[in-house]
Nucleic acid binder design. Structure first.
Length: 277
DNA sequence: AGCAACGCCTGATAGC
DNA sequence: TGCTATCAGGCGTTGC
């Protein structure tokens, strides 16, 4: 599933090809992907516009367009954005195709149809895409003391807090589990039971695993590929995610998987012990 | 306000 | 073999 490192890798890939290109036509084959405005207006307002650059905020891609508009795309679980030649075979579940003035295409493919697109003037796009709620950008703006203070006033399980996009933007299930293992913290620990030292270790661990994920061009665990359809390689570095029953890379104990708030959490029971009452 | 459960989706897999 | 049930989970919504 695309999290911060995967979305960042897609951004970097597409940045090599999209700036300067003009949208000549847009085919919307599944209208529910277009959240705002209605699909016909979405198409009408995109055609003729030129891509300027691409930004990322959390797991959201922001395509800056000529004329003061921004196109926001969220890949959710299985979304893929690929730059391809018009003659390349069209993958199944391709729901939106942006035709470009050089004959190439930007294609959005999404097996589970959870992905989302928004188009609005620059000064309205954050509200339209509900991005104003997003919290710290962990690789750019992640103040340690404020993170420690947030943990101290929240009682929810730390795994839930890491997945809360209004706290930290861009962490999903894979990097949450990997960060907690790297910091030796049990995923069900109440946030306000962590010491300042543990919070600092978690802060450092999150930055470390996210940066490693970017350096390895993402985790291709199931569906993820970059803007040219290429796999990442962080899946080979995973310590706990998807490794239920396999030995912990640190101590050899079998990795456990439990459910926390409906999501799976993977951890080592020896290296990530529960706090004593 | 904080927190948790549910719905949206399809393909892979488990179980009968 | 072929069917059905379950699971995967990001985020918006709903409700406690």
């Amino acid at each position: 599933m695309p999290e911060l490192p995967e979305v960042e890798t897609v951004r970097q890939t597409l940045l090599e090809f999209l700036p300067g290109r003009v949208v000549t036509a847009v085919a919307v084959n599944l209208a529910r992907i277009i959240k705002y405005p209605a699909a016909d207006r979405f198409v009408a307002e995109l055609v003729g516009r030129r891509f300027l650059t691409i930004d990322r905020r959390g797991k959201y891609l922001q395509f800056r367009l000529e004329g003061g508009y921004t196109l926001v795309i969220h890949l959710r679980m299985t979304g893929q954005l690929r730059y391809a030649a018009a003659a390349d075979p069209l993958p199944k579940h391709t729901h939106v195709i942006f035709h470009l003035d050089n004959g190439q295409q930007l294609r959005f493919t999404d097996l589970r149809q959870f992905g989302a697109m928004y188009l609005a003037p620059d000064d309205q796009i954050l509200q339209v895409a509900n991005m104003q709620r997003l919290g710290w950008e962990p690789l750019a703006d992640f103040p340690l003391e404020q993170f420690q203070a947030l943990l101290a006033r929240r009682s929810t399980k730390i795994k839930n807090l890491l997945l809360d996009q209004s706290a930290i933007a861009g962490i999903g299930n894979i990097y949450a589990d990997e960060g907690l293992f790297a910091a030796s913290i049990h995923p069900e620990t109440p946030a306000n039971r962590l010491s300042a030292t543990q919070a600092a270790a978690l802060h450092a661990a999150l930055i470390q695993v996210l940066a490693a994920g970017v350096a390895m061009r993402g985790t291709s665990f199931s569906d993820y590929v970059d803007g040219l359809g290429r796999s990442g390689s962080f899946q080979h570095q995973l310590t706990v995610y998807g490794r239920e029953g396999e030995p912990c890379p640190r101590c050899g104990q079998p990795i456990l998987r439990i459910k926390i708030a409906g999501r799976s959490a993977h951890f080592c029971p020896d290296c990530q012990p529960r706090l004593n009452s």
